[in-house]
Amino acid sequence: MRITLPTILTLFRIALIPVIVVTFYLPFKGANIVAATVFALGAITDWLDGWIARKYNLTSAFGAFLDPVADKLTVTITLFLLVQADPSILMAVVCSIIVGREITISALREWMAEIGERKHVRVALLGKIKTIVQMVAIVILLARLPKVGLPMYQFGQTLLIAAAVLTIWSGAVYIRAAWPILRGREQ
């Protein structure tokens, strides 16, 4: 197994998950800012490991497996924290949509890869836009910044709702791309 710099960055991102959780619960002023900063560091690392892997051709099978796992773990666990901090129907529904789509599309990709049709469910631009909106929303929601001319928490919620809409849309695109294969396997 080849451990490349992008894979090391992905492992670092996984190691940041307990740091996010612990800092989220620390009882000191500014812990929310620390948790948001650590999450943002992970999001930047996610972009950086992909860029390095593509630019310097440092891809590996282990890295290709681990990267989406790290993404899903980080986002899902952080969304759980956000719902606990704001146990409203809005947050529960929006976060459930995002997590539900991630599980569904991950299962779809795994199944499509198993039957040799992975190319039909590759990451698309819409999925990347969804990820950016989602990451920015999560950072804002974790930070729980006071109103600075703009109600930041509500802005973060709006961005998370936008991410959920993009989640549904991008998930539908993946399902639509896979649908002929799904239907063909039944017949």
Rank of each mutant, 00 (worst) to 15 (best):
G30H: 11
A31R: 15
A31C: 12
A31N: 15
A31F: 12
N32H: 15
N32W: 10
N32F: 13
I33T: 14
V34I: 15
V34P: 08
V34T: 12
A35G: 13
A35N: 12
A35R: 12
A35L: 13
A35C: 13
A36F: 06
A36I: 10
V38Y: 02
V38P: 13
V38M: 05
V38N: 06
F39T: 12
F39K: 10
F39N: 06
F39R: 07
F39M: 10
F39Y: 13
A40T: 13
A40S: 13
A40Q: 08
L41P: 03
L41N: 12
L41E: 13
G42M: 12
G42C: 14
G42P: 08
G42Y: 10
G42L: 13
G42R: 13
A43H: 07
A43F: 05
A43Y: 06
I44T: 12
I44D: 02
I44K: 05
I44H: 05
I44F: 06
I44Y: 05
T45H: 11
T45A: 15
T45L: 15
T45R: 10
T45Q: 13
D46Q: 09
D46A: 07
D46E: 06
D46C: 03
D46S: 04
W47H: 05
L48G: 10
L48V: 14
D49M: 02
D49F: 01
D49Q: 02
D49L: 02
G50V: 00
G50P: 01
G50E: 01
G50C: 02
W51G: 00
W51V: 03
W51E: 08
W51P: 01
W51T: 05
I52W: 00
I52V: 02
I52D: 00
I52K: 00
I52A: 00
I52Y: 00
A53M: 05
A53V: 02
A53R: 03
R54V: 01
K55G: 01
K55H: 01
Y56F: 11
Y56P: 00
Y56C: 02
Y56Q: 08
N57T: 07
N57H: 09
N57Q: 13
L58E: 11
L58P: 00
T59F: 01
T59S: 08
T59H: 07
S60F: 04
S60C: 04
S60A: 05
S60M: 06
S60V: 09
A61F: 02
A61H: 06
F62D: 10
F62N: 07
G63M: 04
G63V: 03
A64F: 04
A64S: 14
A64I: 06
A64W: 03
F65Q: 14
F65R: 14
L66R: 10
L66G: 10
L66Y: 06
D67V: 09
D67F: 03
P68R: 11
P68V: 11
P68W: 08
P68D: 11
V69M: 11
V69A: 09
V69E: 04
A70G: 09
A70H: 03
D71H: 03
D71W: 01
K72S: 03
K72W: 00
K72D: 02
L73H: 09
T74C: 12
T74A: 15
V75L: 07
V75M: 05
V75R: 04
T76Q: 07
T76L: 08
T76M: 09
T76N: 09
T76P: 10
I77C: 02
T78M: 03
T78P: 02
L79P: 09
L79E: 09
L79D: 09
L79S: 10
L79Y: 06
F80S: 06
F80R: 04
F80E: 03
L81N: 09
